[in-house]
Amino acid sequence: MEKASHLSVIIDLSPTQWHLSAQTSNQYPLSIETFLSQLLAFLNAHIASKHENSLVIFGALPGKSVLLYSSTELLSDDVPSLDANSYLPFKLVDSAVVQRIMNEFDAIGELEEEPPCALVGAVTKALCYINRITHPSSTTAGVAEDPSIVHDPRILILSVSPDLSSSYIPIMNAIFSAQKLALTIDVCKVYGPDTVFLQQAAHLTNGSYIYLERRDALLQYLIMSFLSPTSIRKILAVPKQDKIDFRAACFCHKNIVDIGFVCSVCLSSTHYLLLSCDLAVFCQPLPVCSTCRLATLVP
């Protein structure tokens, strides 16, 4: 029996970036309205694929992250009235997502300076959510046959903001958790320059990172690359990036560095030696390592 798949979608909702994205000076202007309508069609396609497919949507807003929709729990009491021309679960998603995003945007108000988007917060919440549904409480242990138990969790990040170098360490930590949970992180870069960290996230979790070139064809990109669960990706290929920026951010100034320096003492205690990115990296040789407080031998 085919298993249900779970999709966690993280939408980057930075008002500034979306404003820039909608500018007509872009080659393919994309406003958040068009973006949402295409995204909702994609989400409906995910729900349509299988009755048991589950869906969670998180929004990364300036300074906070919120749960916009969850197919397993009802966030608001007002169930939209039935109408004879639409399938109720689709309608629930659409109205819930749009409504919540409107509310959140209204609540932002006038700000002097927009705080950076809490993308990491949203990713972490998504990870926690998946951890919860993939490891059901012990009372129901043994219902391995339950089709509602998720076997193929995925996270899809729709990013518009540039890299936030201060979030390097939390992002790397999130990637390691994702690897442990054996889930896939897909990234769609809808607007703005390539982000180094998300490229690494997709690469390290065997997901796909797509830079949206034709932004008017968003829906087709989403469906071709991100709709299929991992079992199908073994048959129908999905595009992966051909070159990945593996650069790390240094621990001292949070700059992305080409050449990094690693403490020779605490290196040995690092868990993820192979991945070479959980190391404490500095942009210049330091006499005393800021992580382990030991004098290092400067070559």
Binding site: T72, L88, P89
Partner: peptide, 19 residues
């Protein structure tokens, strides 16, 4: 299932506890 009428499958309940 939760009685929310969405047809959503509750997370931890024994939907398949027919054993």
């Amino acid at each position: 299932r939760m009685a929310d009428g969405t047809g959503a499958v509750a997370l931890s309940s024994g939907a398949a506890q027919q054993g």
